[in-house]
Structure formats: C-alpha cells, structure tokens
Design a protein around this nucleic acid. Structure first.
Lengths: 331, 331
DNA sequence: CTGTTAGCGCCTTCAG
DNA sequence: CTGAAGGCGCTAACAG
C-alpha cells in the first residue's frame, strides 16, 4: 500500500510538507502541485484509520433506524446516503428491529463504538432511554421525530397532515369520516406519527362541529389494512369516507373495497398520507411528504454541526402537501 | 476517553497483558477476570481507529447497491445488517444510483477507501469495469448476481423461476401466455434477472410445443406496469395469461385489470415473481425468493472469507418456490 | 504467563 | 514555507 511517506519521498519533500500539500496547509503553490501530481500518479489514498487516530475525526455518519424495508425508512436512507456522499462522508447503518435482545445489542454496539462523527436517528422508533443515550454521546445528533428535549428534530407536521386530509373530505361535503390507523398494541413507541395525524383529524372535525367516529386501529401494512378494511366495509355502519393514517393503509382499503364491490370514491372516499410510490397507480388522493429530502436536510445539518456545533435543539415541522387523485369525491 | 493504558494502570498490569486479557491472548484466568472487571467498570471501549491501524482489520463490511428504496434491495440490506451485527461487524452502505457523475463518484469513493474488510455487491447493477475494480480490491467480494468470472455469486435461479411460473400456467391449460417485463431501455445492465426469467418462460413454452408471444417490455414499477397493462388488456389480442417478471409488474396488471373491468383470474391469469409483501393483499400467485436470507448467506460467507480466504469463486443458484394464491386459474 | 519495545500511517506542534 | 520529532491507541513480536 502506498503511504504518505512514499509520496513524500518520491516528491523529495518531508512527510509534513506532503501532508500539508494534500490538505489545507500552507505550502508554496509549486510544491503543492508537485505533491498532488505524485500522489495521483501513485494512487495515494490516506488511510482512514490513521487519519482518524490522528485527528479524532472518522468521516462517517451513523444512522439508526427501526427497519430498512419500509418505503419511508428506505427512502429516507437514500436521502441520507446521497447527502453523505456529497459531503464525502461514509454512512454506517444500524437497524434496530423490534424491542428485544437483538435490539439491545444493536443499540449498545452502536452506542459504544466511537467511530462516527455524528448520528442520525429515526427517533420515533426509540425509547426515551435510548434517545437519552444518544444525546449523551457528545456528538451532533439529528433526528426524525417529534420534539425531543436536547435533540434537534424534524418531521412532517403530522397534525397538519391529518387536518389537511380531513379538511379535504369536509370540503367535499363529507360528515361521516372514519380515521383508520394507530397501533392496536399500545406498548410500542413506534409510529406516534399516527397519533398526531389522528389529532389533526379530530381537530378538523371539531372545528367543523362534526362528531368523530371511534378510530379503527390497525397495523400499518397493506395486508393488515386490507383485512381490517374488509370488516369495516362490510359493517352496517360503513363510513362514507376514511382518512387513512398512511398510504399503505389506504391501499389496503382500496383493495378491500374493490374485492367487496364497494366503489371508490362512489360509495366511499379514501384519502391517504405519505404519497407512496404506488399511490398513483391506486389513484390515491393523499398528503405528500418527501423522505429523501428529509434525509438530505438532516445530513446537511449534521455535517455543519460537526465543524461548528451551534447548540440549536429545536423542532421543525415539515409542511404537508395535498395531492388530489381519484379516490375522493363528493359525499 | 478511557484508553487501554488506563485499564492497564488501574489493573496493575502492562498494556500488553491488558490487551491480551481483552482479546484471545494467553493470560492467567485470574488476570483476565481482573482486567475484564476493571475494563467494565471504566466502560472501556477500544478505539476502532487504533485497532484498525494496528491490525489492518476494520471490522466493517461494505455494501454497494443500486438503490435502497426498492423492496428487494432494502430487504436484502436488512439481511446483511442483521448478519453483520451478529458477527460484530459494521455495515457501510453505498448507493450507486443511475449511471452518471454521482454514480462514478460513489463508486470511486468506495473503491479507494480501504476501510472495509470485505464487500457485498449487488452485481446486477454494475458495469463489467466496476465489477472488475471490486475484484481487484484484494478483499473478499460476494455478490448477488449472475455468474461472474473471479467473483463468488448467488442469486435466485431466475430461469427456473420463469420456467416454474410459466409451467404453473401451462398446468392450468393455458396456451396464450404473455411475458411482461424486460427493460425497454437496452443500455442498462440492471435487471438482467428479467432476461433469465424470460428465458425460463421461453424454455417452458418450447418444451410444451407452444409458440411464445412477443414479450411486453416495461419499466419494473407498479405505475409503469399499470400503464402498460392497461394498453395490453384493452388490445384485441388480449392474452389469457401473463407471466410478470416481478410482483410489482404483476400488481400493475391486477390494478389495470380491475380498472378495466377485466376479471382476474376469470378473464386473465396473472403470476408474478418475488413474493413481495403486498402480494398477499393482491391475492397474487407468485414465485418466492427471500432477499433477507440471501443477505444473511452472503455476510456469513464474507465473514468466513475474511478469516481464511478459500478462493472459491463459483455461482450458486437459489431455488424458486411456487406460492399459489388466487390470481391464476384454468384457461 | 507477563513486560518491553516497536511500529501501524497520519497530523501537528515546534524549530528553523 | 519547510523539516524534525512526538503522539493518537492499540497490537505484535521479542525477551524474560
């Protein structure tokens, strides 16, 4: 392997000069150019380990997410990866999974190794204790999630999203609107976004002077939603409209409706939240959020914080955006 | 930060003894236990950079994939991440994206940094040149993709999958079978799996003495497939059955069929390949593959190779598996 | 079994 | 502007 010493020797300068030439340091333009040329010829690449040991910087950002294989998290990670690359940072990935041994191990493993300069966290998947541990790492932490003491956070303004979706239905004259979503299992801190969306739904109805139905909790996956939706649509008190807490839930409803011969939006209007890539094929009216851009945003901020920490720890709500397609119609 | 020296001093031994106690080395049981206790008390964690510099090992595996946000790649990565964690390795991720500047940069960045002990590659997304560069890295390389000289590879036996899907239709008495899939854009090396699946389809028909239709190339996404399917199903020579090169394509067909009032499987039978998580909700008959297990397989192999390279460079085809649901029926 | 001695490759004072 | 020297934290011979 070619080292800095090789480059220095070949260039006829000292290691220090070579080092300076390769980075910012003050060197004469001539030597710099010369060293750079030699380095290129030799395909010199600095050893990350050595650089890290000498500087304390690792050049990598850690990302901690609940699972990779969902539209939201995988798209978010894509955004993180692109931005990290643009800033010349590497991205180290940790999947937490559900609570349990594996999860603890993953988290511990991540927390104890000091080889990241900053960490991105999908906070909505962490316990309070875990978030605290992250904060105490002493490096910049940026998270997707609700407001969290001591941590800079961002996320879709879920309440506004729920409100916007509901208002859209209200504008169409609907009054019998079901909210579908929210975990049946109270244990998990995950998916609290759904609670905020539900709150937005309730607020919109309250403002309109309309009574909300009892929500229909379900797991936020297409198959689970389809199953639940089949029951909902077969019931005597079938709602005329539904606000789905996510597009996957909305898709489950569309699938169930078609299977049951229920027309969308003729018999029931359905609005989702997310703008999942499949939403268009389902003709879904939805509230859009852009995970990839959220990832970019986070990494840009993190990289800035590595150089000069600002101490800012507030929360930023991202604006939702209505996308009208064919799944909603007049009451 | 607490270092090995701190532990050694506090334990009253030399750094080397402490180091040995913390790892495999020969030390008396008593000293080992003592050092271990002190280390735990002090929350000692070895500096990865220092270890790496001293040993030449980095404890991380690099993964290079075309994009994160597809079911296949994100599930694959989940498998990689789980297995890596189990072996106490970190996972460094690189997303290549489409060909172009960003892609070159990503690849170069990855190739030049020597901070991974082994690399996983989603070969199907790479050019021959890129694969060659990976091979020349001098570290173990394991890939998902077709047989590649000099590289250990695995992938679903796509030809067998295409054949199995087609045979299933043949068994139902179908003779008018369309193959939907294959990139309209010849440029990209990506998704060659579709070609093999198409080959399997043709082989099955040939064996049955049935003439194949001209395939319907399309982008492998739900929206694109739905659009293409709408045209296919409206045509005068609408096929009685279709082998979709992937479940996403199959879903596009199901959506299009429902939109056009075409009954599945009454008017047209549809079989997919992959067993995407949404497949069940679509009632899709499909050929299953298990990306997460593929990821695990790869990492297990890679970790073994890091310790003792075996030089094996062959290809392994993974067996496809028919999953019958409701989207296929008699001719 | 344990301590001493050298580095691993780079950056960074400190002189010149 | 440049060179020499020391150290980042750890492991790996080499003696004892």
């Amino acid at each position: 392997m070619v080292t800095l010493a090789d480059v220095a020797r070949r260039a006829g300068v000292s290691k220090s000069t070579a080092s300076r030439a390769l980075s910012d340091g003050r060197v004469s333009a001539a030597t710099r150019e010369h060293v750079l040329r030699i380095a290129a010829e030799l395909h010199y690449v600095a050893s990350p380990a050595a650089v890290s040991l000498a500087t304390g910087r690792t050049g990598t950002i850690g990302a901690i997410v609940p699972t990779f294989d969902t539209w939201y998290t995988s798209t978010l990670i894509r955004g993180l990866a692109h931005a990290a690359l643009r800033h010349d940072f590497d991205l180290l990935l940790f999947e937490l999974g559900e609570h349990g041994e594996h999860r603890d191990r993953a988290f511990d493993h991540f927390r104890r190794r000091r080889h990241v300069d900053a960490v991105f966290s999908a906070n909505f998947a962490l316990t309070r204790r875990e978030v605290g541990a992250l904060r105490d790492l002493g490096i910049p932490v940026g998270a997707i999630g609700g407001p969290t003491p001591g941590i800079r956070t961002w996320c879709l303004d879920d309440e506004a999203a729920g409100r916007l979706a509901t208002q859209h239905l209200l504008d169409h004259g609907h009054t019998d609107i079901l909210f579908a979503g929210g975990r049946p299992d109270e244990e998990l801190a995950m998916y609290v976004a759904e609670d905020s969306r539900h709150a937005g739904y309730r607020a919109a109805l309250r403002d309109a002077g309309i009574t909300a139905r009892a929500p229909r909790p379900l797991m936020p996956t297409v198959p689970a939603a389809k199953e639940a939706a089949t029951a909902v649509l077969a019931a005597a008190d079938r709602p005329r409209a539904v606000v789905a807490a996510s597009d996957e839930i909305a898709m489950g409803f569309v699938l169930a409706a078609r299977g049951a011969g229920v027309s969308v939006p003729g018999d029931v209007s359905i609005v989702g939240i997310d703008d999942h890539p499949h939403a268009a094929a389902f003709g879904l009216t939805t509230i859009r959020q852009r995970p990839a851009e959220q990832g970019r945003l986070l990494v840009d901020w993190l990289v800035g914080q590595i150089d000069e920490p600002s101490g800012e720890r507030h929360h930023t709500g991202l604006l939702p955006e209505l996308v009208e397609r064919g799944s909603t119609g007049p009451a």
